[in-house]
Structures are given as structure tokens and as C-alpha cells.
């Protein structure tokens, strides 16, 4: 049975989306899968990755009208008979949460969090969540002005982490540095800016998927070895840290999490206590790494949604290394013309 899966976030740029990794994991799963890329720009590299994405379509921005977004999916669905959509971008999740019932009526299935789950993992509610799952949260204050930042710095001291609402985080050692980062982030990403107490330790990530009934469908933990300026993991090593795995399972159970997620934490050097930094409500860009180590979460998600049996184990080896790299493709300008003019890539072999 051929399954058609549409995947967003195929922007494999310096701030990579998870879409290409999801498609690669699906292609290597052994299932008969047709992958459809949902892009927002004709130069998203995933459109041109013919070996893992069979066909791509340009979508209207999720910040636009709900109707045009649904109409575009209907149009693609009429030609592709989409079985599953895997949303892989934070910015589009609210609209997918909104239109999931409409898609269901069309026969398109999704495994995404509910609005309540989405709200509970908000960056500004971390303390509440941390208490619920028995870990710590670094003390933080939300700032919308330099006056707020000064107050936060007085309370939290230095070094101080200055973090954007979506991306970017900087360690400030003085109020002058903190003000500089505050302004830089506000210009790029807007408010609120989060001032967070600095905890000395290493950052770890856990990827997982919840079935919506409190059960996890597999988890996989890494230590970040190299992080880009935007805070994205570039190189990583798999770890088996039972405290971390247990905390992740508590997240899935406690929130009855539905869909893919990334649990970002910090382990304090002195105490090895776990501090929750963030929960991203979708698969992270390094989603292929666990798939390559036997924990193929995109495949498990598709199998659950299409009524097939799926693995739930988290049996993987520690000490596996992920090396991300950049690459160049050589294509013809006519490939770009096809996407920019018609809003879709050519069929493979055309």
C-alpha cells in the first residue's frame, strides 16, 4: 500500500527545518511512501532534493487567511490523495491545530498537539511544567522594555541569559552587554525577551513522539556537541541518561502529548540536576539521527495514523555521532522557473 505523506519545514538552511530529515527517515523506513514537500519559498532546498522528496508545492503563508491555506491543501490533495501531513514548523502549528478537523473530513490525518497542550509547553510557563514533571526550571523574567531588563538583571544577577521569543540566546556578563543583546533580539524577533538566570552546565535534547493517550512511541537523547549562533545543534552524540529519559516520559504522560516533540534541557555541572529549557512541539531538525539509530519516529507516526503496527521501543546505542554538513546541488534554472511560476516542482523524471 503506497502512503502519501506531505511534510513541511523542508528549508535545509543554516537554521534548518526538520522536513528533509523526516522525508529521509520515511524513505528509509521500508514503507512504500510518496513524500510531498510543502514549501513557502521557491528556493527552499528541500524542493530540489529529488532523492528524498518526490514532489513539492508552494503553500500560502500560515499567517494569511485560513481559507486560502485550506484551499491550497484541498488542491494538492485532489492531485496527490494525501494520507498524512507532518507539520514541522512552529509558526504553522496554530493553523494546523485549527483546521485539523477539516483535514480529517478530507481523509488527511495528523498527529499534533491540542491547543491546551501547546499552551502548557509555552516558554513562559516552564516553571509550572517543570514542577509537574519533577525537574527544575531556571529562574526567568519576561521583559518588554529595557526597564524590565534592568529589573531582571538586578534580581537574577550576572551572567544572565538573554533569549528571544523564538530563536537566539546570548550570555551577558554586564548590563551593557545585556542591553545590546536585548535590542538585537527585539529587532530580529520582537517581544517578549526572556531574561534567564545562567546555569553552568551542558545542554541535552530528547526527541520523542506521544500517541495522545499518555504513551510514548520512543525517545532518543543527545548531548549537543556543537551549537550554531542561532542555538541549533550541529554535531551531537547519543547518550543513555535514565534520569533524562524518565523526565521525558513524564512529559508525555503528564501532558498526554500528541505528536512529535523536542525536550531541551540543561544538566547542571555541580549537581547534575535537570533544568528544562524548552519543549518544541514538533520534531527537531536532527530527526534523522534517531532514525539512523533504529528509532524512526516519523515512520512510527505514519504507521500509527494509518492503522499499522509500530514499534515503541527506545533501544538505541549511546556513543553514536551525528555530523551535520553542508552541501551544494547543481540544478537548472528551469527547475526554479517551474516552482516559481507554477508553484510546484516537476514530477521526477519529467
Amino acid at each position: 500500500m503506497k502512503i502519501t505523506v506531505a511534510v513541511s519545514g523542508i528549508n535545509t538552511i543554516d537554521n534548518p527545518g526538520p522536513g528533509a530529515g523526516i522525508c529521509r527517515a520515511l524513505k528509509e523506513s521500508g514503507m512504500d511512501v510518496r513524500t510531498i514537500g510543502l514549501a513557502y519559498d521557491a528556493l527552499e532546498p528541500g524542493i530540489y532534493l529529488d532523492q528524498i522528496i518526490d514532489k513539492s508545492y508552494i503553500m500560502p503563508y500560515p499567517s494569511g487567511s485560513r481559507e486560502s491555506f485550506i484551499d491550497r491543501i484541498k488542491d494538492i490533495h485532489s492531485r496527490e490523495c494525501i494520507d498524512v501531513i507532518i507539520s514541522a514548523l512552529d509558526a504553522e502549528l496554530p493553523i494546523y491545530m485549527d483546521i485539523e478537523p477539516v483535514l480529517k473530513d478530507m481523509g488527511i490525518k495528523m498527529l499534533i498537539p491540542t491547543k491546551e497542550m501547546f499552551r502548557l509547553r509555552d516558554k513562559l510557563r516552564l516553571k509550572e511544567l517543570a514542577e509537574k514533571i519533577g525537574v527544575k526550571a531556571p529562574e526567568y523574567l519576561s521583559c518588554t522594555s529595557l526597564t524590565d531588563l534592568h529589573e531582571a538583571a538586578k534580581k537574577l544577577g550576572f551572567p544572565l541569559m538573554v533569549k528571544g521569543p523564538f530563536y537566539e540566546a546570548y550570555k551577558a556578563n554586564s548590563i551593557g552587554e545585556a542591553e545590546g543583546y536585548f535590542t538585537k533580539i527585539a529587532v530580529a524577533w520582537g517581544y517578549p525577551i526572556i531574561a534567564q538566570k545562567f546555569i553552568q552546565g551542558d545542554e541535552y535534547d530528547v526527541i520523542g513522539c506521544g500517541d495522545g493517550n499518555g504513551n510514548d512511541m520512543g525517545v532518543f537523547a543527545i548531548r549537543k556537541m556543537t551549537i550554531t549562533k542561532l542555538g541549533k545543534v550541529w554535531n551531537a552524540v547519543s547518550v543513555r541518561n535514565e534520569k533524562l529519559i524518565s523526565a521525558t516520559k513524564k512529559v508525555v504522560k503528564g501532558l498526554s502529548w500528541r505528536g512529535g516533540f523536542e525536550f531541551e534541557v540543561l544538566l547542571e555541572d555541580k549537581t547534575q540536576d535537570i533544568y528544562v529549557l524548552e519543549i518544541n512541539p514538533r520534531f527537531p531538525a536532527w530527526v534523522y539521527f534517531p532514525a539512523g539509530c533504529g528509532i524512526n519516529l516519523p515512520a512510527r507516526m505514519v504507521q500509527l495514523l494509518t492503522g499499522q503496527e509500530y514499534d515503541t521501543h527506545s533501544d538505541y546505542k549511546s556513543g553514536k555521532l551525528m555530523i551535520r554538513h553542508t552541501n551544494e546541488l547543481v540544478k537548472d534554472i528551469s527547475d526554479f522557473e517551474q516552482v516559481s511560476t507554477f508553484g510546484e516542482s516537476a514530477e521526477k523524471g519529467e
Binding site: 551542558d202 541535552y204 552524540v237 543513555r240
Partner: peptide, 17 residues
């Protein structure tokens, strides 16, 4: 700890080497 003959030590819990 995973300790190789070359003296390379890997801590599978923390990921440090």
C-alpha cells in the same frame, strides 16, 4: 564507562569523552 585500549574514555550518560 566505555574505555578503549587507546585510552579514549566515553561516558554514555553525559556524552562527554
Amino acid at each position: 564507562l566505555a574505555i578503549s585500549e587507546s585510552g579514549f574514555i566515553f561516558d554514555p550518560v553525559t556524552g562527554h569523552s
